[in-house]
Amino acid sequence: MLNARIKLRHIQAFLEVARQRSFARAAERMSITQPGVSKTIRELEEITDASLFERTPRGVSLTEAGLTLLRHAGPALRALEEGVGALGEEHAGSWLRVGALSTVESRLLPEAILRWQASMEGESGVSVVTGPSAFLLSRLRRGELDLVVGRMTEAREILDLSFEHLFYQRLVLVVRSGHPLADKAHLEPHQLMGFPWVLPPPQTTLRQRVDSFFVRHGLELPTSQLETLSLPLGRYYVQGSDAVWVAPEEAACGAVDAGVLAELALPLEERGGSVGLCINTSLAPSLALETFCETLRGVASGIP
């Protein structure tokens, strides 16, 4: 039975500190003072008889007890918000919050959204949040997203979330048309080292694949790099330079077919990683979410 001393403000403050990893930033986001946030968290720790946060050089981190509470508090608050929202007619219609990895931004997700909205009766909307898998999966676990779509099976953060495979997708090495390496039928890895590279940022699942490529071939990371998950930035940068772009196959195929970019004759990986959808099974799925997941499956079935 829930302790009657635990109030909604305790849960809201706890989730915001967990999200921001900082009492000061949480206070700013909640428009209250930092002492007020600290007092609220201290009250919650006294009520639960557990230490929820510990200080680190970079702010605060969740303790084991804090992680346990996080797994339940986020979805519970989200369920409450949905219940209150369902009472008002102004909330009629369907709205989804989708986390999107760069591996699905160019084809799978846009096509699925178009099909889903065309099939829905009444108002429908989709809010898309992009970023690394760790960031998106943590928001899904807290109930702040309805699902996450992309290549993420290598992510440690999946844990107790439910992943469904849709198809495999490779990372490819891409350069501009006319690049010195573009027309070479055979390439050795060391031949790429004299050029800048566009890479996924460190601590991402895609970067793990790139780092494995360099280790496998005994190479050091290039001295000139652009680290980004932004597909438009990567594409524009590589089209205007001699850079080598590590790109999701989906993001590059259109420009390669049009002759604007060229895929190098050197595979970064053979099979690729599993692209799919991830949901939080601790939350009951809405009809809109179930319909959208089925739409994703339909679009994915047409991707070779």
Rank of each mutant, 00 (worst) to 15 (best):
E45M: 11
N280D: 13
L166T: 03
R107N: 09
A76I: 05
T295C: 14
L137K: 01
S31T: 11
L233H: 08
F195P: 10
L181S: 05
D160I: 11
P232T: 05
V149M: 10
S224L: 14
H190I: 08
G74F: 08
Q239P: 03
H165K: 05
L264V: 08
P75C: 07
V238P: 01
W197H: 12
I6M: 12
M120I: 12
V238K: 03
A65E: 09
P285F: 04
S94H: 15
E290R: 04
G88N: 10
R170N: 07
G143Q: 00
R9N: 13
A265S: 15
H91M: 14
T130M: 05
G272C: 08
L109T: 05
L266T: 05
G298W: 02
P180R: 12
S38P: 00
V198S: 02
D146C: 04
A252Y: 01
V198E: 02
E263T: 13
R25V: 09
P248N: 02
S286F: 10
Q191I: 00
P75G: 11
P232H: 04
S224E: 15
G143V: 00
L264N: 05
H91V: 11
L159N: 15
I6F: 13
K39A: 15
S106I: 01
V256K: 01
L264I: 02
R141Q: 12
Q203Y: 13
M1H: 14
P196N: 12
L77N: 10
L264A: 11
A79S: 14
R297F: 02
P132D: 08
Y236G: 10
S274Q: 11
V126R: 02
V104D: 00
F292K: 00
H179G: 09
I158G: 02
V172C: 05
R42E: 13
A50Y: 01
F167V: 00
L219F: 03
D242H: 15
C278T: 15
P57D: 05
P110F: 01
G143R: 03
A76Y: 14
L70D: 14
A262D: 06
S124D: 09
L287Y: 06
H179M: 03
L137M: 07
G259A: 04
P57V: 05
S31M: 12
G93F: 07
L166Y: 05
Q203G: 02
P267D: 04
Q117S: 13
L101N: 03
L287H: 08
M152W: 00
R58T: 11
P285Q: 12
G150P: 04
E90T: 11
T40C: 13
E188S: 07
A243T: 10
P285D: 13
V260G: 04
L219G: 04
T228K: 05
L199N: 07
G234H: 02
A255V: 00
S301D: 06
S38M: 11
Q12H: 08
E89F: 06
P189Q: 09
S133A: 15
G83Y: 05
Q208W: 06
S31A: 14
E270L: 15
V210W: 04
L62D: 08
G259F: 09
L277T: 15
V198I: 15
L192R: 06
S133Y: 05
F163G: 00
L70V: 00
G150I: 03
